[in-house]
Design a protein around this nucleic acid. Sequence first.
RNA 1: CGGGCCGUCGUAUACCGGUAGUACGCUUGCUUUGGGAGCAAGAUGACCCAGUUCGAUUCUGGGCGGCCCGACCA
Length: 419
Amino acid sequence: MRQSLLFTKTRREAPKDEVAKNAQLLIRGGYIHKEMAGAYNYLPLGLRVFKKIEQIIREEMNAIGGQEITLTALQDPAVWKATGRWDSATVDVWFKTQLASGTEVGLGWTHEEPLTALMREHISSYKDLPRWVYQFQTKFRNEARAKSGLLRTREFVMKDMYSFARTTEEHDTLYEKAKQAYFNVYKRVGIGEKTYITFASGGAFSKYSHEFQTECEAGEDISYISDGKRLAVNKEVYTDEVLQDLGLEKGDMREAKTIEVGNIFSLGTRFSDALGLNYRAEDGSEKSVIMGCYGIGPGRLMGTIVEVLSDDKGIVWPESIAPFRVHLVELGNGNEDVGKEAAELYRELTGAGVEVLWDDRDARAGEKFADSDLLGLPLRVVVSEKTLAAGSFECVHRAGGKTEHLSASELINRLTPHV
RNA sequence: CGGGCCGUCGUAUACCGGUAGUACGCUUGCUUUGGGAGCAAGAUGACCCAGUUCGAUUCUGGGCGGCCCGACCA
């Protein structure tokens, strides 16, 4: 797309009320806009990144058999009362409101209850299991303190998946598959190396839950990482007993700040029993469905990626989630030939299926380069009188800064898959 | 939820109990053109409500909003 038509603009300075690096850079780049504390709007560039992250997650969930749905944000208190999670003393993040009639409703902060109730209509036999269901849906959580930009907000989209199994053994195989799918997601969005599966409190339903924690100074959590075994233990359960249970030695663990980028739980029959989600087994007996839940917030993931990968000049997007792969920077200074060359290259690249942001603005080189660094697209291709004279384009990789001089065909060859 | 700090053009900042200044951005013109240009001319601002005062953006109180530390965080 032509940058001159993009309605968002970059800013030289970050707003004073944002301290978190992810919020500062994303706001300066025009990716997001803060609506209020803990609530951010996604602007064109930010939405493109968000959608790409969402799509990667979607592909990985589909790969293990997930079926996508969308549940409502408006929640009927009845199902929550059945599980004891309607009371605000028990769950302090509820946003509650009323219908015009005075009937109380809640804004969903998670969806075990409504989905479990819904599945009663569709699961009645062992033949109906196992199943995976997931959604990308807006959650509302009345956090006492929103903070750290996209890392902790009051309104956010979450991919929440739920598994339904016949037995704990079957559940365990589903759970392991989900773990692998999650690893795939972190790897594909560029933070695989810094993300560790982490043992955390299992709550009332099982001994442990698993978190995916990404090592980062901006993190709210403290984890103890075993580099040798590539796993971690959340500080909340870091005891001698747990270490022994997991076969870990205190001396092999190092402390680090981490961001929780995913969390998966075994739910057992906590919800199926409370809401009556049962199935008829082969022997005719009535049994409870064994459930699991699996969450990732694409927005928090986006914030984490900015925290982990950006440098002092701006954002550094991995190719898989960059809003565009190529930043075509035209330094024309009114030279018509440069403009023509840029237009031609833009046509060729987009024709080859490469996403290009074309900086066709009437601005000086310094400003364009600074903006380009800030926006952080993976490859900057400069077209100018210089490159015209040289007969090749200057291509600079945002990550690492490597510069190459390539012809149009070499560039297209590089950017498109070979058949 | 406890504690602290803060609220001034679009953004970032300054000063002041008596005409609110600067930088970037924006508009117009000229020059400039490979790392956030220069000159000239413009437009745009005190969160809300009360109180003190001849006069409040400034002082006091309350409200609303924001950030930070802590607590909390299926």
